[in-house]
Amino acid sequence: MRICAENIHFTYPGNVKVLDNISVTLNPGEKVALIGANGSGKTTFARHLNGLLRPQSGTVWVGDWKTSEHSPAQLAQRVAYVFQNPDEQLFRQRVWDEVAFGPQNLGYSASQVENMVEQALSLMGLTNEANFNPRDLNYSGRKRVSLASALAMQTPVLIFDEPTASLDMKEKKQFSKVLKTLNLENKTTLIISHDMDFVVENVDRIILMYEGKMIHDTSTKHFFKDKELIENSGLVIPQLIRLSQELNHLDLALNVEQFIKERERIITTIKTE
């Protein structure tokens, strides 16, 4: 499903302008990262995409729906949004029931719900914890439950706010797999994140916000060409990109595989010279 934001403006009471004429289209099957320093307007913008906030001017389309004409609960059929802190949403006594909450709200039948829950639990590697109390899991465990809760809703669009914060290597790898699965199902995913090393390896497109404006929107490969822009926006350039730049690679590596290919190319050119 396509999401289309057209000329969004938003000002909080007290005249703080947070969004200044934002226009973005997210297409089915796209993996997009929304990045920028705290206070740049990322979260405010993302909350427009599932109707939690409504634009003061401009329009947000979710498929053929205008967000201004639907409640966030209705929009939840199309857009799932995972908040950063799992403790601000978990409330049931069993992981299974917690994950079932979304699909139940969306009105699926009991057998459908069961199916959706089982799938989401297995995607997040929580099948063995299905009967645990979410509160007995550690923080990253609770975080994975909140991610599963969103996956279970099987919406065409998913928004994740800092999904990898506090996850360790294995958990990040698992989430990375989840993103690939969603991609194969032609779903649209948007990740708000500071974790640049994760972002470069997992998204196709990066949108950079700065002081309420969208100042950059391009493919991940092209994004890092403008070194100054990134550093001025308070971001960290991922390690492999920095290394590629220092070694004067023509092709900036987004992952180790690409890096090695470029090294090989360089060495062969040296040899043939």
Binding site: R47, N50, L52, S71, P72, A73, A76, Q77, V79, A80, Y81, V82, F83, N85, E88, Q89, F101, G102, N105, L106, S149, A150, M153
Partner: peptide, 15 residues
């Protein structure tokens, strides 16, 4: 406020 938003995003009708 945050909790309300998080649960609305999971399809909870609060109105």
């Amino acid at each position: 406020q945050t909790i309300r938003s998080a649960q609305q995003s999971r399809g909870l009708e609060t109105q």
